[in-house]
Computed example of a mutant assay.
Amino acid sequence: MKIIINYMLLCLLAVNTVAAQNNPKAIKLSNAEVMPYEVELTQNKTTHILFPSSIEYVDLGSSDIIANKVEATSNVLRLKTIKEGITATNFTVITSDGKYYNFNATYKLEPLQLSYDLTKFEKQNNKQQSEVLFKDLGDTSPTLVDLFMKAIIKKNKKELNIKSKNYSVEARLKSIYTQDGKLYFHISIDNKSNLPYIVDYISFKIKDKRTGKRTTIQEVSLKPIRSYSDAQIINSHSKQDNIFMFDQFALSDKQMLIIEINEKRGIRNQTLKIKSADILKSKQKSNVDYITIDSDTMILKDEGYII
């Protein structure tokens, strides 16, 4: 009996396989192909590729080529071969904005070009890149996160009155927004002095309020998932706005969020203190959405912001 049942299942599987092959509605995987860039590599010279955003992931199709991010940057990849006349291969790059890049690499003793600027290329050719989703962003695409941050910067609305001023430099938490389980902090640094302000680091810590001299203060450091800008220098008499994105959290009445902005080799440090009530008053932007105008143009419905 068991043999008969197994035979019937095998026949059913064979029928389904033939039906799928003859189904005119079957989708060919080639229709989903990510078109590759073509690049020539060599052993005695280094090829550099400039990406529009920070490089998050690199996978090489062969050990005959080597690739490294340039130490002083986050969006430049350098490549070369380990020997002459290697077999054609490929490599893949994913950037922090969720873009997926595929390259076909061939060997050439003297490549015609050694430097590639994909930022310039994509603007000129309106090339639409495939997009990936990052675990830390959940179901929200990196493109939509970027659009939302830009909309906050453009709106530039002062919802909160939390600020710190020291030696002609003022830091201000302008607003807090919430969207899809994330919190967005809009921080502005205004350098009114004659000297550039170089940011050493910006830290975010949840601390217990001091209730007594003998009370042990608990401290938890928070790391942003994303930030709008990586710029570290605010020139004299200029202002810089940034957005920091976190997983949603709440504070108790006995806790505070401390944001510390420290100057490199300086004393113009700033401290912003955020209470539980400030977090709970974060603005809900549940209607944030975008309309695709063409392959490279999107518009936020609620802000009228075009990118």
Rank of each mutant, 00 (worst) to 15 (best):
Y290R: 10
Q179R: 12
S175W: 02
K182Y: 10
T46D: 11
I261N: 01
L251P: 06
D59W: 09
Y290M: 11
E260C: 00
S168P: 01
K2P: 12
H186Y: 15
F246W: 06
F185R: 07
N16A: 10
S30M: 04
P196C: 00
L300K: 05
D294V: 07
A20Y: 03
Q21G: 04
D241F: 14
I66L: 11
I274V: 15
V169I: 05
S62K: 00
T292Q: 10
D180G: 01
H237L: 07
F244H: 11
K264W: 06
V132C: 07
F134K: 07
Y57C: 01
K205Q: 09
K158E: 10
S54V: 02
Q284I: 15
Q284L: 15
P196D: 02
I217H: 11
V199L: 07
K223F: 10
L183V: 02
Q240P: 03
N102P: 00
D64A: 05
R268F: 04
D294F: 13
D302H: 04
Q255P: 06
Y290S: 10
T73G: 00
N22H: 08
N31I: 06
S252P: 11
S141W: 01
T297V: 13
D294N: 15
G181A: 08
R210G: 02
K239C: 01
I162R: 02
T140D: 11
I86P: 04
I307D: 08
Q232W: 04
L280N: 08
N126I: 15
L114G: 09
E40A: 12
A20P: 00
H186K: 12
Q218M: 06
S53W: 02
Q129F: 00
V76L: 05
D230W: 04
V169N: 03
Q21A: 05
I261L: 10
F91S: 01
I259A: 01
I4P: 00
M245K: 08
Y201R: 12
L195K: 13
I258S: 02
S276Q: 14
V76C: 02
I291D: 10
Q113I: 14
L9N: 10
E131V: 13
N269W: 01
Y177V: 07
Y57H: 09
Q240H: 06
D190R: 12
N104K: 05
L144R: 05
N156A: 06
L41G: 06
K239P: 01
I187C: 07
D64C: 03
P24Q: 08
K174D: 08
Y100S: 10
